[in-house]
Design a binder for these strands. Structure first.
Lengths: 157, 157
DNA sequence: TTACCTGCAAAGAATTTGCAGGGCC
DNA sequence: GGCCCTGCAAATTCTTTGCAGGTAA
């Protein structure tokens, strides 16, 4: 593992499981590991914010300036395929990426002023969605619920 | 009204209210009416499907071949500003436009196979959303709920 | 050695903008 | 007449693809 050197021997390796998932996925598809892919995964995992592709690109470039935009997109695609990453399309059309592994299904509450994201979950809503879909004769496959408002701090201003 | 000639005298003019809203909006902004704008509004209103910009463009071109793409986009912007039109961004990133005037707030149930749109409404879900937002200290401004699944016909295949 | 991978630049797709000529009020 | 509108082409923005050289296995 190329990133070993960053951590002291004996430290728990952060995101060990996620890295294993990626590694296994690459192997299963006869794809190869590379320092770029490892580094992009690393930056992606340790950034809690929901990043846009160009934000991820800039962050990755900080420590790995020779990385290209296409590699960012290509790697994000792989991360989605192996279930580590989810693509989120907001109402204004911007696309952001979020961690998926270890995160249960959730919806989003987003501050229209400061951009704060809160992950939310309400089983009742999920149930009602199923009921609605059934009433219309649909088999529900997935859904996207975005709530927009002002967060505690921003509503006071 | 430029489109008068299409209808016999004495016929109820379709979409009279919507046209009035557009006219009033243009006046209020000191903007001008034009045959292109009227025609685009007309095609938009009489098409029940949720159109993409290029679909609207093609429909408008049928009877008004000299219309340009930019006029479509510019007019759609005006229609959104005056509340006649709503922009809907789907999960695959495509953008579609729907009628807004006379349509109560609703969410959407979309068939992932044939693209069928069903407008849905569940007051319970709306209530739960408010509750959720409040719990997180947010003031809710709006929301978007898209349900994806297979419709009655498509699920059988 | 044989794929696969990478960065770059070019190509795409969707939308917006600048401009010169034409039309509404 | 003055401002607004239009179509066109060019510019933008975001993302994908082709290619020639480099690299993992």
């Amino acid at each position: 593992m190329i990133l070993n050197f960053i951590f002291n021997i004996g430290d728990a390796m952060p995101f060990e499981e996620e890295r294993k998932i990626f590694e296994d996925y690459l192997k299963s598809k006869r794809l190869k590991q590379s320092s770029q892919r490892d580094h992009i995964l690393d930056v992606f995992l340790k950034t809690e914010r929901h990043l846009k592709a160009d934000e991820l690109y800039r962050l990755v470039k900080k420590n790995f300036p020779e990385t290209g935009f296409s590699t960012i997109y290509r790697t994000l695609k792989l991360l989605r395929e192996c279930g580590l990453c989810n693509e989120l399309i907001l109402d204004d059309g911007t696309v952001r990426f979020e961690h998926l592994y270890g995160h249960e299904h959730h919806d989003h509450l987003i501050c229209t002023k400061c951009g704060k994201f809160v992950e939310i979950m309400e089983p009742q809503i999920e149930k009602l969605q199923l009921k609605l879909a059934k009433k219309e004769g649909f088999v529900l496959q997935n859904h996207r619920l975005l709530l927009y408002g002002k967060c505690g701090k921003c509503k006071k201003k």
